[in-house]
Every structure is written in structure tokens, then in C-alpha cells.
Nucleic acid binder design. Structure first.
Length: 490
RNA sequence: GAGCCAUUAGCUCAGUCGGUAGAGCACCUGACUUUUAAUCAGGGUGUCGAUGGUUCGAGUCCAUCAUGGCUCACCA
């Protein structure tokens, strides 16, 4: 017992006392007729739940105000909190003794009658109650709740019990994700599942996690994207597919990055990046309208207007606007390097015009893009899976969507020329061999698929977690991931 | 990976100049049958993140480590 705190010891003693009284502290299910919110919402209203109505509910005890031979308490169930009132005169001496053995945090079932107290609070007068679960540890404080972020993430269940707003965010997340699926399904897209373990980690520029398969005696990578498998399905004639699920990138952790995160990738044959742009803005606006009942949300005390159409700006225009550099006037790598240095970028020796354009954009433009904005036409060097523009072979039909300074979507007209794709991969491999761990690997099997012919296709990826952050006004990605990646304690 | 900050009771937090560890909530004892941050009277429940060091003496100063947060780097 020495390892237990005083409060834990007392709770264990109460547990033993319950058993002495013939009460099992971990009881069976309780048949409930109502949730707290039902009662609060429907009491009195058109006689739906009249005064004296009998209700059965179950919940966790979160406050107790004992007054000798009677007690007020609040219980919390899935729907919310409601006050209960237990009187010795109503339940009897023995039952009241059992009631007094309850602690904050215990789960009970009860049956009683709804009434309104003198002060007007809708309350259930307990007639029958049963302890269902004894909590052996005290809950965090009722007043400040749990604020230690370390504990909130590690013991999310406590966070959910004592901080009701946290639960709201995750309910919203669930609804938003469901609505994304509804939207896509209604548009005729087919949800598919592709492998999470890849022999080649492709479809994005990122370092993968490595795992090992014993029987095959080979290393496998956790997927960093779903792209290459979904495009194989397009080759196979599944013309409208999407996958919504977890991907894994072995990168740093920050308020905007978690090693595992959720993306939805969407591919449509006989579509291009313009179609994907329409899809992006329409999907996000529609989902917000459906779930939040609005297309303007507040993020970080600023209003975000999601109503389509979102402004489109080519990358070159955006750089011209925010950095006052005109890449249309820059044709050589040398010129680009000079101006990039002049603007304060750390320029690598072999940096190309396209790479520097992208760097300048990321460094100086991204943070300005608060309202939803499409940045269109990306340099070919940073877009190895996107189709080359016919009127400018150094650029691709690609866009990214930005909101609140964060990238939330990435899309292109998919590269379907197998010869070009192989060359692009080979350039990536060269970068890789030069030490760029994030450069892509050559996926022969994918090129093989392209050689059989992939129809003209538009593809789109949306970062679900970031989108949820914006739509729930959450400052950190950890606020929208139930169990964010943490170092184990000790 | 780098810099800054934090770590004290179950929770939220004070702790001065280095001198025997504090508050609120929670908990315990007693009173109280419509309270609601219930109230009233009493009670402090602790490996001060860990390990070393300086010192007569360390929650406090120094070093290292651990975990977390923020900023940056990388990335989406």
C-alpha cells in the first residue's frame, strides 16, 4: 500500500467496504432510457418530459455536494452533465450509506424522477441507484481541469472527461471526415484501400519509416503517400477512386506535423488539375456548410472565407506580388542564384531556377496566404509526378491550396508519359545519390503500369489534420489527433 | 538536430536573499434533507523530474540527463 497515495488507499478501502455490503463495485450494464442532454433539452417542452417523468441514466460522477442526509451531485454521460439529487428518505438508510461511499470519478446507474429545484435547475431525484464502476484514482480538478499538455496527450481519456471542448473537436473531426466521404461517394468516387507497407516508398518527397517482414526477410517502408497505388488503379480502369487514411513520414514533430497523419488522395480519369481545383474548393466549402453550417470560419481570431471560387495565383505571380521578383525575367540558373542570394536565401551550388523559385515561394510567400488560395504552376524539378506544361516545359500543371499560411492540398494533372516519368525518377535517384534523403526512389513497377497506359488524370491530396485544424480553430495538430506521437515516459 | 522556457501534493499553482514545504480544489473527521466553485469547524496527504556537484545547510546556485512546451531547421 505504500506506493499508493492517500486518496488511492481510501478509494480501495471504499471498494472493499462496498463488497462487504454486498455491492459489486464493477457491476453489469445499466439499462438507460435517457441521456443527460435529452432530459435537459426536452424537460417541459411540449410535455415531452414532464415534471415527475421517470428516467434511467448512467454516467460518471463529476461533482458531489453532500448535505448530511441528502446530496446533490452531477453526473456526466456521453451527451453532457446533469444534476442528480439523492435523499435518504427516498432511497433508504442502507442505500444512502452506499451512496456516501461513492467518489468523484465513479460510474453509476440510476433511476429517478425529473424535477426542477428551487433555483431552477433540472435535476433527477434518485429513487434507485447502483454503483457500476469504482474509480481508484481521483480525477483532475473540477475547476481548472487538466491543463498540463503532456498529461492531456498521454492520458487523453482524462482530457476528454474533464475538458468537454476537447470532445467537441473530435466529434467535429469525425463528422467532417464522414462528410468528406459522403461528398466523394455522392460524386461517384470509389473508396479503396491500398497497401500501407511498401517495398518502395513513393509518391512524395519524405523520409519513410522502415519495418521488417520476417518470413520474406525483407525491409518494408510504411507508406508516405497513397499516390502510386491509386494511379495503378486508374490504369486498371477504376476511373474515380480515393483513399482516406493514415500515412507516415519520418520527419520532425511540430504544431503542424505529426509523424503519422491522415490524408485523402483523390484520382479522376479524364480530369485535369483545373477540375481538381474546382473539386478542392467545392468539397471543402460543402463539407463546412454541411457540418458547421457556414462557409466562413474563425481561425486564430481571423475570418477564413471558404466560399468558392478561391483566388488563383501562379507561383510566379505570387512571388512577384510578395517578393517583388519576376521569374519571367529570369531564364538561367545563375541569374536565379544571384537574385535568391540577394533576397537572403541560402543558395546551394547547383541550385536550379525552378528549385530556387520554389524555395523563394516557401520562404517568403506561404506565410502570407491566409485566405484560401490556389498557387498554380510549379517548377518541374519539385514536381516529379506532375505533367509538364505544353507551353513551358520547365513548369508543371500543378497547384497547392493554402489556408492560414499552411499547405492543405496538393494536386496535379498526373504525368502519364512513362518515358518522361522514368526520366523524372532517374533525376530523383541522382539527387538521392547526391545525399538528398527525401528524393524519390525509382518505382519500376509503377513505370511498368504507366507503360500499359494511364488515361489523362487529375489527382488531388488533402491533408485532413490541417484542414480539421482550420475548421475547428485548433492551433496545434495535436489538438486534432487523439493520441499524438510522444516519447514514452521514463 | 539547435536555442529558450517549464517540471513542487491527485489536479491548478505560489515559494523572496540559500536557512525545517505553501495555497485553492480534491481528500479525511464532524455538522448540515433544494445545493450548485454548497457552507461551517478541524486535518497537509510531498522522492520539490533524475543524478552528481558547490555549501555548515539546496525546491532555490552549478553540471549532466529525462520529459514536455515554444521558436527555428526538416516536412505536409
Amino acid at each position: 500500500m505504500e506506493n499508493y497515495s492517500e486518496q488511492e488507499i481510501i478509494r480501495r478501502q471504499k471498494l472493499a467496504r462496498l463488497r462487504e455490503l454486498g455491492v459489486e463495485p464493477y457491476g453489469e450494464k445499466y439499462d438507460v432510457t435517457h441521456y443527460a442532454a435529452d432530459i435537459l433539452g426536452r424537460f417541459d417542452s411540449s410535455e415531452d418530459i414532464p415534471e415527475g417523468q421517470q428516467v434511467a441514466l448512467s454516467g460518471r460522477l463529476i461533482t458531489v455536494r453532500a448535505h448530511g442526509k441528502a446530496s446533490f451531485a452531477n453526473i456526466q454521460d456521453e451527451s453532457g452533465r446533469i444534476q442528480i439529487y439523492a435523499r435518504q428518505d427516498d432511497i433508504g438508510e442502507r442505500e444512502y450509506e452506499i451512496f456516501e461511499l461513492l467518489d468523484i470519478g465513479d460510474i453509476i446507474g440510476l433511476t429517478g424522477e425529473v424535477f426542477r429545484t428551487r433555483r431552477g435547475e433540472i435535476t433527477v431525484a434518485v429513487k434507485i441507484f447502483r454503483p457500476l464502476v469504482k474509480a481508484l484514482r481521483p480525477l483532475p480538478e473540477k475547476w481548472h481541469g487538466l491543463t498540463n499538455v503532456d498529461l492531456r496527450y498521454r492520458q487523453r481519456y482524462l482530457d476528454l472527461i474533464v475538458n468537454p471542448d476537447v470532445k467537441k473537436v473530435f466529434i467535429l473531426r469525425s463528422k467532417l471526415v464522414q462528410e468528406i466521404r459522403n461528398y466523394l461517394n455522392n460524386q461517384g468516387f470509389l473508396e479503396v484501400e491500398t497497401p500501407m507497407m511498401h517495398s518502395i516508398a513513393g509518391g512524395a518527397s519524405a523520409r519513410p519509416f522502415i519495418t521488417h517482414h520476417n518470413t520474406l526477410d525483407m525491409n518494408l517502408y510504411l507508406r508516405i503517400a497513397t499516390e502510386l497505388h491509386l494511379k495503378r488503379l486508374i490504369v486498371g480502369g477504376m476511373d474515380k477512386v480515393y483513399e482516406l487514411g493514415r500515412i507516415f513520414r519520418n520527419e520532425g514533430i511540430s504544431t503542424k506535423h505529426n509523424p503519422e497523419f491522415t490524408s485523402v488522395e483523390i484520382y479522376q480519369a479524364q480530369a485535369d488539375y483545373q477540375d481538381m481545383m474546382h473539386l478542392t474548393e467545392d468539397l471543402i466549402a460543402a463539407v463546412a456548410q454541411k457540418v458547421l453550417n457556414t462557409q466562413t470560419v474563425t481561425y486564430m481570431e481571423q475570418e477564413l472565407n471558404l466560399t468558392p471560387p478561391w483566388p488563383r495565383l501562379t507561383m510566379i505571380e505570387a512571388i512577384r506580388k510578395y517578393v517583388n521578383v519576376d521569374f519571367d525575367e529570369i531564364s538561367t540558373n545563375q541569374e536565379a542564384q544571384d537574385i535568391a542570394r540577394q533576397k537572403g536565401l541560402d543558395v546551394k551550388k547547383n541550385a536550379t531556377r525552378g528549385e530556387l523559385m520554389n524555395e523563394m515561394f516557401e520562404e517568403y510567400v506561404e506565410k502570407h496566404l491566409f485566405q484560401p488560395t490556389f498557387i498554380v504552376d510549379y517548377p518541374i524539378e519539385v514536381s516529379p509526378l506532375a505533367k509538364r506544361k505544353t507551353d513551358d516545359l520547365t513548369m508543371t500543371y500543378r497547384f497547392e491550396a493554402f489556408m492560414a499560411g499552411s499547405e492543405i492540398a496538393n494536386a496535379f494533372t498526373e504525368l502519364n508519359d512513362p518515358v518522361d516519368q522514368r526520366e523524372r525518377f532517374e533525376q530523383q535517384v541522382a539527387k538521392r545519390e547526391a545525399g538528398d534523403e527525401e528524393a524519390q526512389m525509382l518505382d519500376e513497377d509503377f513505370v511498368l503500369a504507366l507503360e500499359y497506359g494511364m488515361p489523362p488524370t487529375g489527382g488531388l491530396g488533402i491533408g485532413i489534420d490541417r484542414l480539421i485544424m482550420m475548421l475547428t480553430d485548433s492551433p496545434s495538430i495535436r489538438d486534432v489527433i487523439l493520441f499524438p506521437t510522444m516519447r514514452p515516459r521514463e
